[in-house]
Amino acid sequence: MSALARDLAPLVLAGVLGTAGAGKLFGRGTARQAPRTALARLLRDGGRAALALRVLGAVELLLAAALLAGPVTPLPGGAVAGGVAAGAAAALLGAGFLGYLLYARAAAPDGTSCGCTARHDTPVTWRAFVRAAAVLVGGVAAALAQQPWWTAAGRRPAAALCLVLAAAAALTALSADPDRRWRMPLRRLRLRITGHPLAATGARTEAPLAATGARAAVPLAASVELLERSRAWQSVSRVVRSALLDHWDDGGWRILQFAGVYGGGGPAARPVLVLFAVDAGASLETVREPAVRVSVIDADSGAPVLATA
């Protein structure tokens, strides 16, 4: 099995380098991403970093092609010169990636994109290190391959297929943004199968309507929104100083309590409570002209104060 894995390494490695290289060379995001990568910090210029990423993409594509093409000249020992060169180059590339990642980690511990796949703005994580190490190991294995990958695959097609699929799955799991690729689709699927976990909140707001014919109480936020757009609010807004102090429902009314100052800023100023009563079932959705009751009472005595401010 290990011999098969070694002989198939060029194929898998070509797949990895081919995708990453094509992304860097042809991806529209490369120029946009480059200034945010650690490479830009290393080269001290975003434009140079973009160029370097594109060149690296081209090199990766060339390596992928060389790995796919396999041996050019069979050597007496059985090793294949073309494959050895491409494998060694890929191993060097993997070692270079590892070094670059270590630099990126040291230069910008949190946040800098590695630019590894030039697609998403992904920070340097353990996944990037594992990917680079995989390229290094794959390169060494490809250099040590004893026969072309198609010969090895032809001899044991089923095992080869399983091996390639497993490698592809592992590499996908290591891809830069697992959330975007599979965690969110899986969660969406679960919701589709098990139903929306918050569906009951929708039933709660609609049930009392049907059962009693009366309007169900709306969320407090809807009542406050209704109040703040009402003429009642306008008439006493200069008295109100606090945000919402307290609120409660009583007999279909929702009472909203604020604190305020009445009588200007001089010695005659008195602390007051400003009370609003709104329909507990009304919101801007259901009422165009809300009827709001307003009371201003003295905070110390509880005596009503005329709201003529």
């Binding site: 936020a221 406050v224 929104e225 703040e228 757009r229 009402s230 003429r231 009642a232 609010w233 306008q234 008439s235 807004s237 109100v240 606090s242 945000a243 919402l244 307290d246 409660w248 009583d250 009314w253 009472i255 309590q257 604020f258 409570l273 009370l275 609003f276 009563a277 165009r288 002209e289 809300p290 009827a291 709001v292 009751r293 307003v294 009371s295 201003v296 009472i297 509880g302 009503p304 709201a307």
Partner: peptide
């Protein structure tokens, strides 16, 4: 206290109408 304040609120002047004004809720 709430009972008292409810009575006070419901005895207050009723103002009808809508207009857009400044807010003092959490958004503010």
């Amino acid at each position: 206290r709430r009972r008292f304040l409810t009575a006070a609120a419901l005895h207050g002047a009723t103002v009808v109408g809508a207009t857009a004004l400044g807010a003092v809720d959490a958004d503010a």
